[in-house]
Design a binder for these strands. Structure first.
Length: 283
DNA sequence: AAGACGGGGGG
DNA sequence: CCCCCAGTCTT
């Protein structure tokens, strides 16, 4: 796996020599539910503008949200700025070591704390993202896909699989994640190119059985608050401020729904009231 | 354990 | 047009 990564790993900017822990933390937050290819250009501009936590901490939030652009889930941008402020306030403007201290930061959960520990601090940490879950589900458990929810058993499996030696553990996390992203993909895995297939992937050995029928209802998007919130944020990024009338054009048929979304954006701190007390603008 | 939370590109 | 993406936080 580690040799495979050496040959096939992508040349991503946050993997370059000398990239700071802060820059890696920023990349990890941006990569939460957003594909690599969309993150790269945003990350480059972001790091150019705010190379240190103190820079982001002092930035106008409206600019932060604009630069985040359409990476999705804009509260991640808000939390990243809160995170930068927490680093300045509590950690001397540096990214702390230790998963417990990392997890206490806004927007940093189990995955990100482990990823920063492994990829920024080069320490042994059990990193489990969607790619690693899928690779382990296939290679070890012989399943087409991991279970819906992340279980203690899965964390335990990842822990047992992780090499004991520190440098190898870091390389392993990177390699398994990359294999899941490039070869052992969700939709159409390319087992012919997989270094694990020959070594005995349980799923390949079992004849690549199909996934169990997924009975859960997929999350709708069209017509949801999530979509409308996104449209409102797009409007605010473009114009800085939007009056009541402009907001209502987003869904002229359902004013209460527009109002509900405005309320939730205000509650989240993603927007504030306009100057005349009506309409909306970026914070 | 289940839902909310954006947005876009590939199959 | 559906599915998935280096998840987190709140019920």
């Amino acid at each position: 796996m580690i040799a495979w990564f050496g040959q096939n790993g992508r040349d991503l900017p946050w993997r370059h020599e000398g990239v700071s822990a802060w820059a890696i933390l920023v990349s990890e937050v941006m990569l939460q539910q957003t594909p690599v290819v969309r993150v790269v250009p945003r990350w480059e501009e972001w790091m150019r503008r705010w190379p240190e936590p103190a820079d982001l901490a002092d930035a106008p939030t409206a600019e932060v949200l604009r630069c985040w652009d359409r990476l999705g889930y804009p509260r991640r941008a808000l939390r990243l700025q809160e995170c930068a402020r927490a680093l300045v306030r509590e950690h001397g403007g540096r990214v702390p070591h230790g998963e417990e201290a990392l997890r206490a930061l806004p927007g940093v959960g189990e995955y990100t704390a482990a990823a920063v520990t492994a990829f920024a601090h080069r320490r042994r940490a059990v990193v489990v993202d969607t790619n690693i879950r899928r690779v382990l589900a296939r290679a070890v458990r012989g399943r087409a896909l991991p279970d819906r929810s992340y279980s203690a058993a899965e964390r335990s499996l990842a822990t047992r699989t992780l090499p004991a030696e520190e440098a190898r553990s870091v390389a392993w996390n990177q390699a398994v994640m990359e294999l899941g992203a490039l070869v052992c993909t969700a939709r159409s895995p390319d087992c012919a190119q997989c270094p694990l297939a020959a070594a005995g992937c349980a799923w390949v050995a079992a004849g690549r059985p199909a996934a169990e029928e997924d009975t859960r209802r997929r999350q709708a998007f069209e017509g949801t608050d999530r979509q409308l919130r996104g449209q409102i944020m797009a409007l605010l990024r473009r114009d800085g401020e939007a009056g009541e009338a402009a907001l209502l054009t987003l869904d002229a048929t359902d004013a209460p729904r527009v109002h509900r979304c405005v309320q939730s954006l205000l509650a989240d701190g993603l927007a504030v009231r306009g100057r005349e007390g009506e309409g909306l603008r970026l914070p």
